[in-house]
Simulated scan of single mutants.
Amino acid sequence: MRSQSYELSLTTQGPTYPPSEVMDANGDFIVIGRVNRGTPDGGVSSEWGRAIVSAASPMPPHGEQLPYRIVRELPEQLTAADRDMVLYTLPLPLPINNYPMLFAPEGCPQAHYVERPSYPFHEVPIPDARPEDGLRVTEPVTLGQWVQAQGWMEVSLVDRGRAAEFSFEFSGLVPDSMYTVMSLRENDLAPAPVGPSRPGPLGIPNVFMTDRDGKAHYRATLPNPFPAEGAPGPKRIVNVVLLWMSYQQNYGGAIGYFGLGGDIHAQLKLQTASFQEFTTTAG
């Protein structure tokens, strides 16, 4: 197969811990993604859904799952009060974070020791910004606005199967705002000793801006993103995640400084590991 199209799914979640990369004003997680629930046999199911999850939920070791403490369910058709809910970053250090990974080991090696409160998205303290410089995101970002996001991706093999081009079209995003696209590889979320490994950007420069209507497009070409099983070098890309950047900064070869709701916030992704239909080769 030389090309394939995909529709991305709305989310607020990266991995299942922290449960979400978005909080409400009460300090609870707004989860659109996999919701961990207890099963009658004492196990855990992790099905796609929507819920408000308590920040007091228990945290298991990385690679394991526990039921979330669900404050309440979120309906597919949001109520007016839910649509008006203002979105917040996660505080630092990140709560219920069992992903032991630095996202910017060169740029911010002490990220795990930074302490900051949770901020409304429109009030994040962007470094060196002054009101007179013309901040673009000045109004609250609400859940009703967040769920308008849509994204479509086409993946095409190029350079005689030695590379792949990823092309995206987006609508309904936060207007006049900075985003990045993250690549997730096979071992990035795997428990020790196989992983985890650091996720990276899908292309460098790794950012784009939405227009005043929340529309944007993005394109990146990566060398050998889908190597055969057992091939040397980096592992296969298995998912891509659209991330809103609350600090409105480009971090070069990193997707963010704090990650997972501290300064990057997942809004669209594929629900399951994908791209099995592709195989690329090294140059």
Rank of each mutant, 00 (worst) to 15 (best):
H122D: 12
Y179Q: 01
A228G: 09
Y218F: 14
G195A: 08
R219C: 07
L173A: 10
V137H: 08
D176L: 14
S197I: 07
E165G: 02
A149G: 13
V147W: 04
S167Y: 01
P125S: 01
V181S: 03
D213Y: 12
E123F: 01
L243W: 07
V158D: 01
H217D: 11
T142K: 09
T180P: 00
G203R: 06
G144I: 09
G144P: 07
E115M: 09
L202K: 10
R185M: 07
I204G: 00
L243S: 00
P175Q: 06
V238I: 15
Q150D: 11
C108Q: 12
F166D: 03
P127W: 03
A220D: 03
D133K: 00
A190C: 10
R212P: 00
R130T: 13
G161F: 03
P201I: 06
T180Q: 09
F168H: 09
E115V: 15
M153R: 02
D176H: 11
K235S: 14
Y179I: 05
N224C: 11
N224M: 04
F208W: 05
V238G: 03
V147A: 05
P105W: 08
F226A: 07
S171V: 00
P193D: 05
S167M: 06
A192P: 05
P199G: 09
G230S: 06
E115Y: 01
P175Y: 02
F121H: 06
V137D: 08
R116L: 14
I204T: 15
A192K: 12
A163Y: 05
L135D: 09
G151F: 12
D159W: 11
A104D: 15
V174C: 10
P232K: 07
A104T: 05
Y119P: 03
P234H: 08
R185K: 12
E132H: 12
L157S: 08
E186V: 11
A190V: 08
L202Q: 10
L222V: 15
E132P: 00
D128Q: 10
V141L: 06
E165N: 10
A190P: 03
K215P: 00
I204S: 11
A104R: 08
E229C: 05
A220V: 01
E186Q: 14
S171N: 10
A163L: 02
E165S: 14
A192M: 12
L242W: 03
A190I: 02
V137M: 13
D133N: 09
G144K: 08
P232H: 04
W152V: 07
S167D: 02
R185P: 04
K215N: 15
L173T: 10
